[in-house]
Design a protein around this nucleic acid. Structure first.
Lengths: 185, 185
DNA sequence: TTGAATCGGAAACGATCATTTCCTATATAT
DNA sequence: ATATATAGGAAATGATCGTTTCCGATTCAA
């Protein structure tokens, strides 16, 4: 079932919620319509399950990319590098499910909207933590406003996912991130 | 007709292309379905007309915000300030038609996709010009990579429009932009 | 005055949508 | 061996979609 959900993640990321039909989902998930409704209740149920799965996989991968070693600045750099990897090539064009969902947020009910908002807030909180860790270990100056810097990084990586939809190179994205890191000095 | 198109821009920005039906368009544009089809050929025609109008209005407003006076850095600052104004409050939640369209880009034909890609490229070119003007008049150091900095600003402002959909304050957004400006030193 | 052209829009059309119903096959329990 | 439960999915359903057709009102020209 996880494989089916992963494919649902992919098609929702590519096409958005409204641009994806149940027929599209049956094709990518290799399930009939009746089976989808038995497993997920309705289309929004599939979407929410895909969204949660996307969130948990991405968080796990991000934590692995950040690692345990190194200074806060190095770990922030690795976090941003993780986003660079996602923002170019095939994965870049596929897009980010959170960004795509935020673009359509006004069409969802409050429950779904809250999931989307929470996802962004959690990303921001994680980035804030990294900046603070850097300030604690001296790799990031303490005069830096950790919340604003984290918010800047959040906007930047979300924007990289938008621009990545139209095709950009890995080097271009990495250079962008390098400048952003410099702003912390 | 321009008023009708402005309203089409708004509903497409809020809901995306696929989240907006012809019935939605008839309501906001105060035109019957038959009239819409006489004026625009089809739904995609309405969308493209709205997209062009959005682009031309935004470019005009941005140029006015940038102005003619001041250093390149000041004009870049005003450009980013323009985006700050768009990224919070009611307009922030409405979203950006270019960002929303980029999120759904895989569902469009090549003609529409090219319009979207071109819009991002033109934004980037404008920002690159501003950075270069700053380097020419000495307000931005010449060691700064103008293309990468501009690309960073592009990603940042697109990301601000994504995050702005979930509601952010003007001050928060302004602070983000202030840090980005600092990265040019 | 009359007929034709134009305009705006109501209604219809065929297709696709999300969802439900019902059928067949398989597995399990007695 | 038989009956019941479960699983997967084909087909149907009612609603909505994007688009087309056609109608009535108004305007204009002869």
């Amino acid at each position: 079932m996880d494989i089916a959900l992963d494919r649902a993640v992919r098609v929702f990321s590519e096409r958005g919620y409204h641009g994806t039909s149940i027929t599209d989902l049956t094709h990518v998930m290799n399930l009939a319509q009746g089976s989808i409704y038995k497993a997920f209740k309705d289309k929004q149920g599939v979407f929410l399950a895909a969204f949660q799965r996307y969130r948990s996989i991405r968080t796990e991968k991000l934590r692995k990319a950040i690692g345990d070693s190194g200074s806060g600045l190095e770990r922030l750099r690795r976090a941003l590098g993780f986003y660079v990897e996602s923002a170019h090539g095939e994965e870049g064009r596929q897009g980010c499910l959170v960004v795509g969902s935020a673009a359509e947020i006004s069409t969802f009910d409050l429950e779904v909207a809250r999931h989307i908002t929470t996802a962004l807030e959690r990303n921001e909180a994680l980035l804030t933590d990294l900046v603070r860790q850097g300030q604690n270990d001296g790799s990031i100056p303490s005069h830096v406003d950790s919340e604003t810097s984290a918010r800047m990084m959040l906007c930047l990586v979300q924007g990289m996912r938008v621009v990545g939809k139209t095709g950009r190179s890995r080097d271009d994205m990495q250079a962008v991130v390098d400048i952003a890191i410099k702003s912390l000095h």
